[in-house]
């Protein structure tokens, strides 16, 4: 099968090598809604030499900051970010797992105070980078699978 292409963007951010099927979740997490100014193109289940299959999200006229896109690492740890200006890649990096993940994934302990009606947001602290492991700041539970609990 021929690799799926989506049109290049002039200015903006390209999020590539997204885990297949996760593109919409990525947009939701970055709170990208798309409007007249910030056009969004998405490819899902595109062929990838590196991953077999991948998703791609391109956002026009918006340069996403590292602390924003790094939140994606929890969802799709191999994603790469390219910042495009005048059709040129001016910056390219891989997302990095943040030390603290707030409001992205629920603690998997249903009895945790952060899963109750309290004025707090979930907060997971990284305890290991490779393999990535997180622990709930509140109840101390080591999380088995953060990706299953993305809010």
């Amino acid at each position: 099968m021929k690799e799926v292409k989506i049109a290049p963007i002039k200015n903006g951010t390209v999020i590539d090598h997204i885990k297949p099927g996760m593109a919409l979740k990525v947009m939701e997490m970055l709170r990208i809604d798309g409007d007249a100014r910030h056009g969004v193109s998405i490819a899902m289940y595109a062929n990838s030499k590196k991953l077999g299959l991948k998703d791609i999200v391109k956002v026009e006229e918006l340069e996403l900051e590292p602390d924003v896109v790094n939140r994606l690492a929890v969802l799709t740890p191999n994603a790469t970010i390219s910042i495009i200006r005048e059709l040129k890649v001016v910056e390219k990096y891989m997302v990095q797992l943040p030390q603290v993940v707030e409001g992205i994934a629920r603690c998997e302990n249903l009895n945790c105070i952060s899963n109750q009606k309290e004025p707090i947001i979930s907060k997971l602290i990284r305890t290991s980078a490779d393999p990535p492991r997180y622990r709930c700041f509140y109840c101390g539970r080591d999380q088995e699978n953060v990706q299953n609990n993305i809010i």
């Binding site: 603690c107 302990n109 945790c112 952060s114 309290e118 109840c139 101390g140």
Partner: peptide, 24 residues
Amino acid sequence: REGAARMSATFSSAPVINGGDGAG
């Protein structure tokens, strides 16, 4: 609830001693 003491400490300027939170 587990984590109740940790959360309480973030809302209280008075020190909090955990006397047991759930199975925590």
